[in-house]
Design a protein around this nucleic acid. Structure first.
Lengths: 108, 108
DNA sequence: TCCATACTGAAGCCTATACTTCACTATATA
DNA sequence: TATATAGTGAAGTATAGGCTTCAGTATGGA
Protein backbone atom coordinates (compact mmCIF):
# COMPACT_ATOMS: atom_id res chain seq x y z
CA UNK A 1 0.00 0.00 0.00
CA UNK A 2 2.72 2.42 1.04
CA UNK A 3 4.65 0.77 -1.76
CA UNK A 4 1.84 1.52 -4.19
CA UNK A 5 1.67 5.11 -3.01
CA UNK A 6 5.35 5.62 -3.67
CA UNK A 7 4.83 4.29 -7.18
CA UNK A 8 2.06 6.82 -7.76
CA UNK A 9 4.35 9.56 -6.49
CA UNK A 10 7.14 8.43 -8.78
CA UNK A 11 5.02 8.24 -11.92
CA UNK A 12 3.23 11.56 -11.41
CA UNK A 13 6.53 13.16 -10.55
CA UNK A 14 8.09 11.71 -13.70
CA UNK A 15 5.28 12.92 -15.95
CA UNK A 16 5.05 16.27 -14.19
CA UNK A 17 7.98 17.53 -16.25
CA UNK A 18 7.27 18.55 -19.88
CA UNK A 19 10.66 17.38 -21.14
CA UNK A 20 10.11 13.93 -19.68
CA UNK A 21 6.64 13.78 -21.22
CA UNK A 22 8.24 14.63 -24.56
CA UNK A 23 10.72 11.80 -24.06
CA UNK A 24 7.95 9.33 -23.27
CA UNK A 25 6.00 10.54 -26.29
CA UNK A 26 8.95 9.94 -28.60
CA UNK A 27 9.71 6.55 -27.07
CA UNK A 28 6.08 5.51 -27.53
CA UNK A 29 6.82 5.46 -31.28
CA UNK A 30 9.71 3.10 -30.72
CA UNK A 31 13.01 2.64 -28.85
CA UNK A 32 15.72 5.31 -29.21
CA UNK A 33 19.24 5.91 -27.92
CA UNK A 34 20.24 8.69 -25.54
CA UNK A 35 21.73 10.66 -28.47
CA UNK A 36 18.57 10.21 -30.52
CA UNK A 37 16.59 11.68 -27.67
CA UNK A 38 18.99 14.54 -27.03
CA UNK A 39 18.95 15.90 -30.58
CA UNK A 40 15.49 17.48 -30.93
CA UNK A 41 15.35 18.38 -27.24
CA UNK A 42 18.39 20.63 -27.51
CA UNK A 43 19.69 19.64 -24.13
CA UNK A 44 22.93 17.83 -23.35
CA UNK A 45 23.37 14.06 -23.16
CA UNK A 46 23.88 14.43 -19.42
CA UNK A 47 20.59 16.24 -19.10
CA UNK A 48 18.78 13.49 -21.00
CA UNK A 49 20.46 10.84 -18.85
CA UNK A 50 19.18 12.52 -15.71
CA UNK A 51 15.63 12.52 -17.04
CA UNK A 52 16.03 8.87 -17.98
CA UNK A 53 17.01 8.02 -14.41
CA UNK A 54 13.73 9.51 -13.19
CA UNK A 55 11.75 7.71 -15.88
CA UNK A 56 13.42 4.39 -15.13
CA UNK A 57 12.73 4.76 -11.40
CA UNK A 58 9.06 5.33 -12.19
CA UNK A 59 8.85 2.23 -14.38
CA UNK A 60 7.81 4.17 -17.48
CA UNK A 61 11.03 3.47 -19.36
CA UNK A 62 13.52 0.63 -19.45
CA UNK A 63 17.07 1.07 -20.77
CA UNK A 64 19.87 -1.26 -21.65
CA UNK A 65 23.40 -0.79 -22.84
CA UNK A 66 24.06 -2.10 -26.37
CA UNK A 67 27.70 -1.68 -27.25
CA UNK A 68 28.54 1.95 -26.61
CA UNK A 69 24.94 3.06 -27.04
CA UNK A 70 22.11 2.92 -24.52
CA UNK A 71 18.76 1.87 -25.92
CA UNK A 72 15.67 3.29 -24.22
CA UNK A 73 12.31 1.52 -24.41
CA UNK A 74 8.87 2.69 -23.41
CA UNK A 75 7.13 0.56 -20.77
CA UNK A 76 3.37 1.05 -21.21
CA UNK A 77 2.59 -0.88 -18.01
CA UNK A 78 3.94 2.08 -16.08
CA UNK A 79 0.94 4.15 -17.14
CA UNK A 80 -1.41 1.75 -15.36
CA UNK A 81 -0.35 3.24 -12.03
CA UNK A 82 -1.86 6.64 -12.72
CA UNK A 83 -4.82 5.14 -14.53
CA UNK A 84 -5.86 3.32 -11.39
CA UNK A 85 -5.30 6.45 -9.30
CA UNK A 86 -7.69 8.24 -11.64
CA UNK A 87 -10.25 5.47 -11.27
CA UNK A 88 -10.09 5.67 -7.48
CA UNK A 89 -10.85 9.40 -7.51
CA UNK A 90 -13.68 8.91 -9.95
CA UNK A 91 -15.33 6.10 -8.01
CA UNK A 92 -15.06 8.06 -4.77
CA UNK A 93 -16.84 10.89 -6.52
CA UNK A 94 -19.53 8.62 -7.95
CA UNK A 95 -20.13 7.12 -4.54
CA UNK A 96 -20.61 10.63 -3.18
CA UNK A 97 -23.20 11.30 -5.85
CA UNK A 98 -24.92 8.04 -4.82
CA UNK A 99 -25.09 9.16 -1.18
CA UNK A 100 -26.58 12.44 -2.30
CA UNK A 101 -29.21 10.58 -4.29
CA UNK A 102 -30.07 8.47 -1.23
CA UNK A 103 -30.51 11.64 0.75
CA UNK A 104 -32.91 13.05 -1.82
CA UNK A 105 -34.87 9.79 -1.86
CA UNK A 106 -35.42 10.06 1.90
CA UNK A 107 -37.26 13.32 1.30
CA UNK A 108 -39.99 11.54 -0.67
CA UNK B 1 -4.23 21.53 -30.61
CA UNK B 2 -1.78 23.92 -28.98
CA UNK B 3 -4.68 24.69 -26.69
CA UNK B 4 -5.06 20.99 -25.87
CA UNK B 5 -1.36 20.66 -25.22
CA UNK B 6 -1.45 23.50 -22.73
CA UNK B 7 -4.28 21.73 -20.94
CA UNK B 8 -2.18 18.56 -20.70
CA UNK B 9 0.69 20.60 -19.29
CA UNK B 10 -1.59 22.23 -16.74
CA UNK B 11 -3.16 19.00 -15.49
CA UNK B 12 0.10 17.05 -15.25
CA UNK B 13 1.71 20.00 -13.56
CA UNK B 14 -1.18 20.21 -11.10
CA UNK B 15 -1.04 16.52 -10.23
CA UNK B 16 2.75 16.47 -10.15
CA UNK B 17 2.68 17.85 -6.61
CA UNK B 18 1.82 15.41 -3.78
CA UNK B 19 -0.01 18.04 -1.72
CA UNK B 20 -2.27 18.86 -4.66
CA UNK B 21 -2.95 15.17 -5.23
CA UNK B 22 -3.94 14.92 -1.56
CA UNK B 23 -6.31 17.87 -2.04
CA UNK B 24 -7.91 16.26 -5.09
CA UNK B 25 -8.21 12.99 -3.20
CA UNK B 26 -10.06 14.65 -0.32
CA UNK B 27 -12.30 16.64 -2.65
CA UNK B 28 -13.21 13.47 -4.53
CA UNK B 29 -15.12 12.45 -1.38
CA UNK B 30 -17.06 15.67 -1.47
CA UNK B 31 -16.75 19.50 -1.49
CA UNK B 32 -14.77 21.19 1.27
CA UNK B 33 -13.84 24.71 2.28
CA UNK B 34 -10.31 26.13 2.24
CA UNK B 35 -10.12 25.75 6.04
CA UNK B 36 -11.32 22.16 5.87
CA UNK B 37 -8.53 21.41 3.44
CA UNK B 38 -5.87 23.25 5.41
CA UNK B 39 -6.42 21.37 8.68
CA UNK B 40 -5.03 17.88 8.00
CA UNK B 41 -2.44 19.24 5.57
CA UNK B 42 -0.78 21.34 8.27
CA UNK B 43 -0.07 24.17 5.90
CA UNK B 44 -1.48 27.70 6.06
CA UNK B 45 -4.66 28.87 4.37
CA UNK B 46 -2.52 30.90 2.00
CA UNK B 47 -0.60 27.82 1.02
CA UNK B 48 -3.81 25.94 0.30
CA UNK B 49 -5.17 28.87 -1.70
CA UNK B 50 -2.07 28.82 -3.91
CA UNK B 51 -2.53 25.13 -4.62
CA UNK B 52 -6.19 25.77 -5.37
CA UNK B 53 -5.25 28.38 -7.97
CA UNK B 54 -3.16 25.78 -9.79
CA UNK B 55 -5.93 23.19 -9.53
CA UNK B 56 -8.55 25.63 -10.80
CA UNK B 57 -6.38 26.62 -13.75
CA UNK B 58 -6.06 22.95 -14.68
CA UNK B 59 -9.80 22.38 -14.54
CA UNK B 60 -9.57 19.72 -11.83
CA UNK B 61 -11.29 21.82 -9.20
CA UNK B 62 -13.95 24.51 -9.21
CA UNK B 63 -14.43 26.94 -6.32
CA UNK B 64 -17.07 29.45 -5.37
CA UNK B 65 -17.45 31.90 -2.57
CA UNK B 66 -20.34 31.15 -0.21
CA UNK B 67 -20.61 33.87 2.38
CA UNK B 68 -17.21 34.22 3.96
CA UNK B 69 -16.22 30.65 3.05
CA UNK B 70 -14.92 29.30 -0.26
CA UNK B 71 -16.34 25.95 -1.28
CA UNK B 72 -14.09 23.74 -3.41
CA UNK B 73 -15.52 21.08 -5.68
CA UNK B 74 -13.79 18.29 -7.55
CA UNK B 75 -14.27 18.35 -11.33
CA UNK B 76 -13.85 14.77 -12.58
CA UNK B 77 -13.92 15.87 -16.22
CA UNK B 78 -10.47 17.37 -15.68
CA UNK B 79 -9.01 13.88 -15.40
CA UNK B 80 -10.08 13.08 -18.95
CA UNK B 81 -7.24 15.23 -20.26
CA UNK B 82 -4.51 12.95 -18.95
CA UNK B 83 -6.53 9.84 -19.68
CA UNK B 84 -6.53 10.68 -23.37
CA UNK B 85 -2.83 11.53 -23.25
CA UNK B 86 -2.24 8.05 -21.85
CA UNK B 87 -4.34 6.52 -24.62
CA UNK B 88 -2.34 8.34 -27.28
CA UNK B 89 0.95 6.95 -25.97
CA UNK B 90 -0.49 3.48 -25.72
CA UNK B 91 -1.90 3.43 -29.24
CA UNK B 92 1.35 4.79 -30.67
CA UNK B 93 3.10 1.91 -28.94
CA UNK B 94 0.57 -0.67 -30.17
CA UNK B 95 0.92 0.63 -33.71
CA UNK B 96 4.68 0.15 -33.40
CA UNK B 97 4.14 -3.44 -32.32
CA UNK B 98 1.90 -3.89 -35.36
CA UNK B 99 4.61 -2.64 -37.70
CA UNK B 100 7.02 -5.06 -36.08
CA UNK B 101 4.56 -7.90 -36.63
CA UNK B 102 4.24 -6.95 -40.32
CA UNK B 103 8.00 -7.09 -40.61
CA UNK B 104 8.11 -10.58 -39.13
CA UNK B 105 5.32 -11.72 -41.47
CA UNK B 106 7.39 -10.65 -44.46
CA UNK B 107 10.04 -13.15 -43.41
CA UNK B 108 7.65 -16.08 -43.94
C1' DT C 1 -21.92 47.19 17.62
C1' DC C 2 -18.15 44.24 18.68
C1' DC C 3 -15.57 40.25 18.02
C1' DA C 4 -14.41 36.06 15.82
C1' DT C 5 -14.11 33.59 11.62
C1' DA C 6 -12.72 32.84 6.78
C1' DC C 7 -10.25 34.19 3.48
C1' DT C 8 -6.99 37.26 0.41
C1' DG C 9 -2.62 39.52 -1.68
C1' DA C 10 1.97 41.05 -1.56
C1' DA C 11 6.36 40.02 -0.31
C1' DG C 12 10.19 37.30 0.89
C1' DC C 13 12.63 32.80 2.03
C1' DC C 14 14.59 28.57 0.90
C1' DT C 15 14.83 24.20 -1.08
C1' DA C 16 14.39 21.07 -4.97
C1' DT C 17 15.67 20.27 -9.41
C1' DA C 18 16.57 21.06 -14.32
C1' DC C 19 20.44 22.06 -16.62
C1' DT C 20 25.40 22.86 -17.65
C1' DT C 21 30.49 22.04 -17.88
C1' DC C 22 34.30 19.17 -17.76
C1' DA C 23 37.15 15.39 -17.27
C1' DC C 24 36.64 10.70 -17.91
C1' DT C 25 35.66 5.54 -19.70
C1' DA C 26 34.26 2.31 -23.15
C1' DT C 27 33.24 0.90 -27.73
C1' DA C 28 33.44 1.15 -32.72
C1' DT C 29 35.83 2.13 -37.03
C1' DA C 30 39.56 3.57 -40.39
C1' DT D 1 46.86 1.73 -33.38
C1' DA D 2 44.73 6.19 -33.74
C1' DT D 3 40.48 8.70 -33.90
C1' DA D 4 35.79 9.43 -33.45
C1' DT D 5 31.55 8.28 -31.25
C1' DA D 6 28.44 7.38 -27.20
C1' DG D 7 27.74 7.75 -22.84
C1' DT D 8 28.93 8.58 -17.58
C1' DG D 9 29.66 10.97 -12.92
C1' DA D 10 30.76 14.72 -10.03
C1' DA D 11 30.19 19.28 -9.19
C1' DG D 12 28.24 23.81 -9.64
C1' DT D 13 24.61 27.27 -11.10
C1' DA D 14 20.31 29.35 -11.27
C1' DT D 15 15.56 29.47 -11.43
C1' DA D 16 10.91 27.83 -10.22
C1' DG D 17 7.76 27.12 -6.92
C1' DG D 18 6.08 25.61 -2.36
C1' DC D 19 5.65 27.66 1.81
C1' DT D 20 5.45 31.38 5.37
C1' DT D 21 4.44 35.90 7.53
C1' DC D 22 1.81 39.80 7.94
C1' DA D 23 -1.36 43.24 7.23
C1' DG D 24 -5.43 43.58 5.34
C1' DT D 25 -11.03 42.83 3.81
C1' DA D 26 -15.58 40.75 4.18
C1' DT D 27 -18.96 38.08 6.55
C1' DG D 28 -21.45 35.93 10.50
C1' DG D 29 -23.02 35.68 15.18
C1' DA D 30 -23.60 37.46 20.23
Amino acid sequence: MAQAKRKVDDVFNALGDPTRRAIVHRLARGPLTVSDLAGPLSITLTGVRQHLHVLEASGLVRTEKLGRARMCTFEPKGLGVIESWINVQRSLWERGLGDLRDLLDEDD
